[in-house]
Structure formats: structure tokens, C-alpha cells
Amino acid sequence: MSRRRQRVPWVSYLLVLSGAVLMVVPFLDMVMTSFKGPGESGKLPYRFLPKGFDFGNYAAALHQLDLPVLFRNSATATALITGSVLLTSSLAGYALAKLRFRGRDFIFRLVLATMMFPPFLFFIPHFLILVHWPLAGGNDVLGRGGAGLTVSVVALAMPFLVNGFGIFLMRQFMVSVPDEILEAARLDGAGEFTLWWRIVLPQTKPVLVTLALLTFVDAWNEYIWALLISTADPDVMTLPVGIQLLQDYVDPTRTMPVVMAALVLSILPVLVLFLLLQKHYIRGVMLSGLK
């Protein structure tokens, strides 16, 4: 090993440490503010620490926000999206990696192409398609007359149910499953569905965890689309949308501590999951560099 490795790199430590402080301080400020009383936040001079650790703001957040409903909506949408992405990606990935059929190359290129389109191009048409969804929410066969699917919690998940990157990821990893094992099982009379479920899925479990985690985090944190759907129907409001609404319409100096308390509660599930499974998550981010 070189000499510069053995010396303690003080300058680097100082730099990385001050950067890390910059990263963490906003989160600490969020937690500290969530304990501040009504007369305490936003007052001059600024004080980092609260006078006492009172959980009143957390009670207020639960009360004012109907947090259980927001949690349920966020959880439902996230579960739908994560489940669907895992299922569709692993099914399609298996077909593209291990089955031979006409049109396979074309479909694989199509999947790659879907990753190139920016999401904002689809906001408007997706919303209109859901509004005019035939035979839903009071619509007729031609999609007229009602609010369509926009008044359902399914609408939160619809545009994210299939993910091009997910298919690509699963396909790349399933390619490396040895063909000999599959051929042997086929000779024993196993169907393709059995092969997928019994052989290929167990072998690609780590990638499935990674994909699940990436999808979960994105779905839980999604804001813009949920905002759009919640405007159409407040009953399907998600956590980020509900908290933002509270922030927007009530006196900010009074409600800021309550908003912070709600935010702490809302980011807690993802933060815990990330800290527990961060190896898988970070690998996912690295893999997304492959596309």
C-alpha cells in the first residue's frame, strides 16, 4: 500500500465531516422543531434546541391530519405499485431472458426505449385517460359522464404499475441463470410457470429485494401525481400531499412544528427500511447506472 494511505488524512476528514453535518442538520432541525411550542418556532433569535421535549405536536398532527387515513392511502398505493412492478418485471424479464420467440428483440428494445421518455410528458394524458376510463366512476362505454378512475385509490398506482427499468434489471440477472438447469427441468415435464417460480425466482432473490426497495421508496415519496389525483378526490390523499396541504393553508408560524412532527412520522418508515437494507438500496442505485 502507498504511503499516503498510512498517514491520517486530516483535511479529508474535516471536509467530509463538515459536509456530513450539512447533510444531517436539516433533519435534526426538523426533529427539534417538531418539539417546539407555539411561541417558540420562527421567533428571533433562532434557537436550535427546543425548550422541552413535548409530544403535543405529534398528537396534534395525528388529530389535524387524519394520519391513519393518509397512512392507509400511501401504504395501499405503495403496496400495489411494488407488488405489480415485482410481478410484471420478473415475468417479463423471464420471457425476455430465457424463452425463444419471434419479436423478442423488438420487445426488449421497446422496454429500453420506454426508459428514455421523461415522466412529465405523460402527466396530462395519463390524467385524461383515467378520467375517461370506460365503465368506471359513472362513465359510459365511451368514457363519458363521470370521473372515471380518478376517484379511486387505484388511480394513485396506475401509471407506475409497470416499470421499464425493473424489466430490464430482472432480464439482465435472469440471463445468467444456467440454461442446463432449465432444460433438465423441461425434460422432466415442468411447465414454464413452474420454472419461473421454482428455479428462476429463488435464484434472483437479491435483485428482487433491490427492485422492491427502490420501487417502495419511490412510490412512498411520490408527490406530483398524488397531488393531481387528490385534487380530483380528497379521499385518496397520500401522506406527502396531506402534510403539504396543512402547511399551505394554515398559519405557518403556528403549524410549522405540527408539520414537522407529521413529516418525521411520514419519513420514518422509509428511513428505517433504508437503514436496515441500505446495501440492497445502494446496489440498486448503482445498477440503475447500467441503463
Binding site: G19, A20, M23, V24, P26, F27, D29, M30, T33, G42, V217, W220, N221, Y223, L239, P240, V241, I243, Q244, Q247, M256, V259, M260, L263, S266, I267, V270, L271, F274, Q278, Y281, I282, V285
Partner: peptide, 19 residues
């Protein structure tokens, strides 16, 4: 530590900084 903001919803990031 540097990755924490990446897994946090934009509503949290935006409001904390706004504050």
C-alpha cells in the same frame, strides 16, 4: 449520511429548507 435526502420525500426536504 450523504444519501439520507435521496430517500426522503420532496415534501419533507422542501418544507424543512423553506423553514
Amino acid at each position: 449520511l450523504y444519501f439520507l435526502p435521496m430517500v426522503t420525500t420532496v415534501v419533507a426536504v422542501g418544507n424543512v429548507w423553506k423553514y
